[in-house]
Design a protein around this nucleic acid. Structure first.
Lengths: 260, 260
DNA sequence: CTAATAGTGTCTGTGAGACATTATTGA
DNA sequence: TCAATAATGTCTCACAGACACTATTAG
């Protein structure tokens, strides 16, 4: 096909929707007279479609909307995020994939560019159902996947999940779910929350992370303004050392265990 | 924005182009009286835009075209591949990303869904310039990136390159560039051709690949119909053992050197 | 013989995994 | 003191990296 014979001769899409899977990890403190590690759960934000919708009325769906000619796709995703939450700037947003196949949307030729956002729970205090009449709610992931979601959003949600699971193991995005400084155990919990398959002795996890040559520069001890190492007692009575991610994205390989 | 108020109220894109970066690795035998390893080069297929094009006439570009309502995006990419080459079915195609920002195409609101294809040189014997008048040519990657490509195709090509480099190290796509059975050295060359940073003693590379527990099941010895191991002398006078990929995609992590 | 690649062997230091043990805090 | 998490220690085996060395083939 020749790119020159464009709009005149060919039908054009009916829009270019952008959908976004907004993930967060919530921690629920366990009751008890002693301080214990919080339960962490991976949750995703869904919105309920209006009862008057022409397609999938009343069903839960990923937040989304149409991108416009005057904005980038990431800007459109960001705008959707803003409309459903009250999160400010510098949120981590990544494009997952773009889908289209005939029949995926009863309203016509509707591709969808899928984004995902990783949001720290601290920044998701109030989910503002906003001016829109639509309802927005965080669901635990399993629950969300059991719902009868609108469109092909169940597949999209699964794709987004696989995407962040891969990223969780191969990049430092765990930091998006953590405060700037965190304990080793918190990091470990976040990884396990997103990737339940990840099972490892925490003592070894810690040693491998901190004392291993190939992982030098990944995280470092958090140092306070007084030059002393920072600690926290938010997870236990005994204070724990705080760490922070350094600016290093390791490159890994299946061919030589470790980095290259 | 509400998804219901669609085509009537909003401007729609002028098309949904799909562009495709078709990569191949060519081997060029070195002259000499002894058998030597071939030089391998990563190359990409570009097409020259017609001199009568309204946009970027005469410049080189990634092959691409408009997807239609009746096909998936991957089908559109595959169709483009077919139009520029004579490659049959089961070609490895992957979606890289989708881009749009105002002004990226002088013809209007044109996003682009970028795919990449990895093609074994054996299957790319004749690049059929086809019925189209447009010229198609393989370029070495460095050369392609030095050209003044049409649109934002230099960025797209860079994105596609980064994409396959990551995939080369973290998945078994090396097989797309290799015959079904290959020598360890050929695998090593393919990896290095795509990712020049990958430098490792080949003796260790081989041992790590073959004798290491965490990489069991990645490749295996190729066995002939007579039950004997297969060898080849295509790279040297001394025959070398042939291997093949098993069906195993390892999962790797930055947190614990190796698989999980 | 030679020139090339294929393949083996060896040694050392580091890391992974499986534990067991001790330390520290608030209630 | 107790209940919880934090932190350290120890032992073994696997593995990565460096390197030297031998083997095989066609010409």
């Amino acid at each position: 096909m020749n790119k020159e014979q464009v709009t005149a001769r060919y039908r054009t899409p009916d829009g270019l929707p952008v959908d976004i899977a907004i993930f967060t990890i919530t921690s629920h403190a366990k009751p008890g007279s002693y301080k214990m590690l919080a339960d962490r759960k991976l949750e995703v934000l869904l919105v309920r479609r209006s009862a008057r919708s022409s397609a999938f009325p009343g069903q839960w769906a990923l937040p989304g909307g149409f991108s416009s000619e005057s904005e980038t796709l990431a800007e459109a995703a960001y705008r959707e995020l803003q409309e459903e939450t009250n999160i400010g700037a510098d949120v981590h947003i990544e494009q997952v994939k773009t889908v289209y196949y005939p029949g995926r949307d009863p309203r016509g030729w509707m591709p969808s560019v899928l984004y995902c956002a990783l949001v720290n729970e601290d920044r998701l205090r109030a989910i503002s159902p906003d001016t829109d009449a639509d309802e927005a709610k965080l669901f635990e992931l399993d629950e969300a996947l059991r719902l009868n979601l609108a469109f092909d959003h169940k597949e999209l949600l699964n794709d987004a999940l696989t995407f962040i699971q891969t990223k969780m193991m191969t990049t430092t995005i765990a930091k998006e779910f953590l405060p700037r400084t965190f304990t080793i155990r918190e990091l470990y919990q976040v990884i396990q929350t997103v990737v339940p398959d990840f099972q490892e002795d925490i003592a070894n996890f810690k040693r491998n992370l901190l004392t291993t040559k190939t992982r030098q520069g990944l995280i470092r001890e958090a140092i306070g303004s007084d030059g002393e190492p920072l600690t926290t007692d938010r997870n236990s009575n005994r204070p724990a050392q705080l760490y922070e991610f350094a600016d290093y994205e390791p490159r890994i390989s299946i061919y030589n265990s470790g980095m290259f």
